[in-house]
Design a protein around this nucleic acid. Structure first.
Lengths: 94, 94
DNA sequence: ATAATTTGGTTTATAACATAAACTAGTTTA
DNA sequence: TAAACTAGTTTATGTTATAAACCAAATTAT
């Protein structure tokens, strides 16, 4: 009857992150932190989970002397997001 | 940036229950259990939470000799659901 | 008649989760 | 050179979702 909602995406912060990454293709940690109004700790954990699932890639480099964490959504992530949205529509459509 | 997602509704089972109740206006425990493929225990707990929040009412009676639990969505529940859906759209729209 | 099974749930225990708090390492500013 | 800030990570904690165990009554089988 109701399709499963991917638990990895059915989370406010992870969903917000994915949503942002889908619109911008590439984003750094601070950008995501600002846009989602999350704490750094929470964001760090959730980014790791998304990366572990293969939904995003995380690249660590330096911007000048400062560490820079850049995230990018993968094809797998895009597909998972689309499937999540389709499943969700079952629940919220009138 | 991103609106809060009502944590009471951002739950697969509770959302499915609300979705069903919005379409049928009145439903009994067994109906909801079947349609959502949930366990009785889980459903019992989640119905209580929705009732406690005032999103649904729970009426206990008997059908013949058997207990019958009937649920109905409230105006508050409908409003909360609509707000949840609107907030959610921010996250999932392209 | 009574034992086993089914119905319609509730209560309790547990594992996963989201989140905040505390911490680290280095950089910039006063 | 000390204080404060940047850019995070790790750890601790309170919530949550869920399943497992339980309960009372009704039905069915022996």
């Amino acid at each position: 009857m109701f399709r499963e909602l991917d638990p990895l995406l059915h989370s406010q912060l992870r969903l917000a992150v994915m949503s942002l990454l889908l619109s911008v293709e590439k984003a750094d940690f601070t950008f995501l932190k600002n846009k989602t109004s999350s704490t750094a700790g929470n964001l760090s954990v959730q980014l790791d989970r998304l990366a572990e699932a293969g939904y995003i890639t995380i690249e660590k480099s330096f911007k000048g002397k400062r560490p820079l964490t850049t995230c990018q959504v993968t094809k797998k992530g895009i597909k998972a997001f689309e499937e999540y949205v389709n499943a969700l529509k079952q629940y919220i459509q009138p």
